[in-house]
Nucleic acid binder design. Structure first.
Lengths: 91, 91, 91, 91
DNA sequence: CCGGGAGGAGAGGTCC
DNA sequence: GGACCTCTCCTCCCGG
């Protein structure tokens, strides 16, 4: 056993220790970014509350934002097609 | 202890048995309806595949069906409001 | 023009009519199965309410049903691995 | 009409202009926080990829993180109850 | 075979 | 306190 790993002979326990450290590090990194996500989500929620207080309809605003996210060309295409379908089935 | 419950004296074990039977019954009932749900979902999926094969856009058809689910008056209201918002922000 | 299609000469309008019929048929088929889905979902919800009334915890029952859905071998594997991870990070 | 609002007499057009500005401001604020959310989500995704590359099972790690989010007392309660239920239905 | 996107389920917040 | 409804998360399916 020529290597310099900690522990001589069977070193599975040491390996497990390394893996445990690795895993813990990953988990903590994830939890950190999840804090960021959660904070931003809270911010967004507050904006929607504010917006509602100002008399805007949050549901419609969500749709609006969804529209703005789309590629303009594609959005237009889809809206045109939807109009065709609506006409076809009579909505 | 005048009742005819199985087991004399402490009958907590018997109670647990009863609860176990109850729980199993509930679980099996749920699983049965979930089979129904799953089957119907499969059916729907197949229809969408068929529809796609016929040249229709499944995504748009989903929107169409969503529109049909809405109350007509409310749908019109929301669409009108959305138009107002779109105009306001320039979408 | 020997056929009996409505419209003479160019029949794109007729084609659109055909497509409209097709689309309507698809939509109605979908809506029919969605009624089935909705009914079954309602049934399930009622069972959960009943079960809650009997003193069982619906949330845990959901997990239980999830476990029953899994392949036993795979379930055991995943539980074993989770135990390893829990031990590693100390949960 | 002593105020300095743009437009004389009926000023609904001006009001609409104000509302449009307000709405645009809200929308842009929301979109800004959504950028933050999206960035953080991307970060998390990358960590999961990295973790997977290191030989960990992402799915199980997700469960692990879910467990860590829970209140310890409540977590133990729920796990105990789940064990009871599992025993009852034989999982 | 993997990544992205859509659908469904679960959890939390809100209103009654 | 319960019921509805929304939002988030997870899973599954399709496309590359």
């Amino acid at each position: 056993m020529p290597d310099g790993s900690p522990g001589v002979g069977h070193n599975s326990a040491a390996d497990k220790g390394i893996a445990a450290k690795q895993l813990t590090a990953f988990v903590e990194r994830i939890e950190r970014v999840e804090v960021d996500i959660s904070n931003a989500q809270t911010d967004r929620k507050e904006i929607y509350q504010e917006l509602k207080g100002a008399g805007f309809d949050p549901k419609i605003v969500r749709k609006l934002i969804g529209l703005r996210k789309m590629d303009p060309a594609e959005r237009q295409e889809q809206e045109a097609l939807l109009d065709v379908y609506r006409d076809a089935v009579g909505v």
